[in-house]
């Protein structure tokens, strides 16, 4: 499956929730499906999208948080999987698009998932209670729907082809996105954030 097709297929399920995506191709493909102020494109700090998602999920248990991650990013922050599992927020779904390469530097630099590593296995043995690996778009859509309905921390690995968009164009600017995202979160959900002193 192509990642862009996968993102298009799950877009209706995730669009009304909090979404944090990794940089580059994944961010650009999500943007191409339609920007929303509740989407945050983490354009740097590779590996920390899942940590950001964890912070949001713990701070706002009334919201569902979806992290669009990648094999290269997850491998940079493997300890973060165990931290996520240990904290275990039920409102967090991590979707790892595994294309087995660091695509933004070209297909020649493969990651360890091309040879030996299995991210679903690492997530499961780190203690993530729900895990899955999907190879087809329809399968992924069902998996994401079930994860969002389950109310349980989930990691889904989506095996995708190593192809990306022609352009990494995103508008809003990073800082504009940061502030609109913060504002969007204030308007979402049904409860005040824990410890919010400004409301």
């Amino acid at each position: 499956m192509k990642r862009i097709d996968a993102i298009q297929a799950i877009y209706p399920a995730i669009a009304d929730h909090v979404v944090v995506t990794i940089m580059g191709a994944t961010a650009a493909e999500l943007f191409a499906c339609g920007h929303r102020p509740n989407f945050f494109y983490l354009e740097h700090a590779m590996g920390l999208a899942s940590s950001m998602g964890l912070g949001i999920a713990l701070a706002r248990p009334d919201l569902k948080v979806i992290v669009l991650d990648g094999d290269g990013s997850v491998l940079m922050n493997l300890g973060g999987l165990s931290t996520m599992a240990r904290s275990g927020p039920p409102n967090l779904v991590q979707i790892v698009f595994d294309n087995e390469v660091l695509l933004s530097v070209g297909v020649s630099f493969t990651t360890a998932t091309a040879d030996v590593a299995n991210i679903e296995g690492i997530a499961r043995e780190s203690g993530v209670p729900r895990t899955a690996t999907c190879k087809r778009v329809e399968e992924l859509r069902e998996c994401v729907d079930m994860a969002l309905a389950s109310n349980e921390l989930t990691t889904i690995v989506a095996k995708v082809e190593p192809v990306g968009p022609k352009s990494f164009f995103i508008d809003p600017h990073m800082l504009e996105n940061r502030f609109e995202f913060e504002r969007a979160l204030r308007r979402m959900g049904d409860s005040k954030p824990i410890g919010d002193v400004n409301e």
Binding site: S51, A59, L63, R178, D196, V197
Partner: peptide, 9 residues
């Protein structure tokens, strides 16, 4: 960073 954007210090 996530906690801050979600309104928690």
């Amino acid at each position: 960073a996530g906690a801050h954007l979600a309104g928690v210090s």
